[in-house]
Design a protein around this nucleic acid. Structure first.
Length: 260
DNA sequence: CCCCAGGCACAGC
DNA sequence: GCTGTGCATGGG
């Protein structure tokens, strides 16, 4: 009944799609880092130091079968999506990592997002960032990342990094705020609009009531539920799925990419 | 040459 | 409030 599909989860377009790499079948390692996760006898395992991290990354506290059961009740689209993606988990990667990934993702395609984000894990001088993983904001501010050819996104990213590193923009303070308030605060960051803000809330801060509307989710909701305008979709998702809107969104995203 | 890619900022109603 | 346009870069 309960199932866990590591590969599907990591490669489903969430933050780990851009920050983890496959090292063997059913095995992944954090880019420029040491954390590892793999499947063993149908169970998720990880490097010892990453035990706590894995619990957060894959939201292991969530009762996913119960959530999937609830959101597919009386819903043919999600029933089908849940059947197809039963092992798909929502992930939580922390706000900075998610900010970088989804700021870079705007008006961009997944292979190139991967390439750019990979480049943001290692400084041009070849040195790894001290703690492993993606470059911290205070490091990014001084790094020359022009070789990554991010286009206009580079200025957004650097300005955002500066605000986070120097002017004390606090992601942590957002955790205690309501969704709309937190969203508005995130949109003060240059290059962060409604969609990226919702991605940071969902994939970064674990706000599962967030419902990012990218082109695929917009298409999905328009086609399958007949709802079109951004604010209408927002209200529709909140009313229909509440705190599980993020799960619904992830299922719809995967489903739409295959069906539409 | 065109259009698109997990959008955003800005202008003009 | 909503709608249109330019935007760096690469691929089809």
């Amino acid at each position: 009944m309960d199932s866990f599909d590591l590969e599907l989860t990591i490669e489903s377009g969430q933050t780990p799609t851009f920050t983890w790499e496959k090292t063997a079948p059913q095995r992944f390692r954090r880019i420029a880092g040491k954390d590892e996760v793999w499947m063993q006898d149908g169970r998720l395992e990880c490097s010892p130091a990453f035990l706590k991290g894995a619990r957060r990354l894959f939201r292991l506290q969530d009762n996913v079968p119960a959530i999937y059961s609830r959101i597919s009740e009386g819903d043919a689209v999600l029933s089908e999506a849940v059947r197809q993606y039963a092992g798909l988990r929502l992930t939580e990667s922390g706000p900075w990592e998610s900010t970088v990934c989804f700021l870079v993702s705007q008006n961009n395609n997944i292979p190139r997002i991967k390439q750019i984000v990979r480049g943001l894990h290692v400084r041009p001088d070849g040195l790894n960032p001290a703690s492993g993983g993606i470059m911290r904001p205070e490091k990014l501010v001084h790094a020359d990342v022009s070789a990554l050819k991010m286009g206009y996104r580079e200025a957004f990213l650097k300005q955002t990094a500066r605000l986070v590193a120097e002017n004390g923009f606090s992601f942590e303070r957002l955790r205690r705020r309501g969704l709309d308030e937190a969203r508005d605060a995130l949109m003060e960051l240059p290059g962060v609009g409604p969609k990226v803000a919702d991605c940071i809330l969902l994939y970064g801060l674990g706000r599962t009531e967030a419902f990012p509307q990218d082109v695929w989710v917009k298409k999905a909701v328009a086609t399958w539920y007949g709802v079109t305008k951004e604010n209408n979709v927002k209200e529709f998702a909140a009313e229909k799925w509440g705190n599980n809107a993020g799960y619904a969104q992830q299922l719809l995203f995967c489903h739409a990419r295959e069906q539409l």
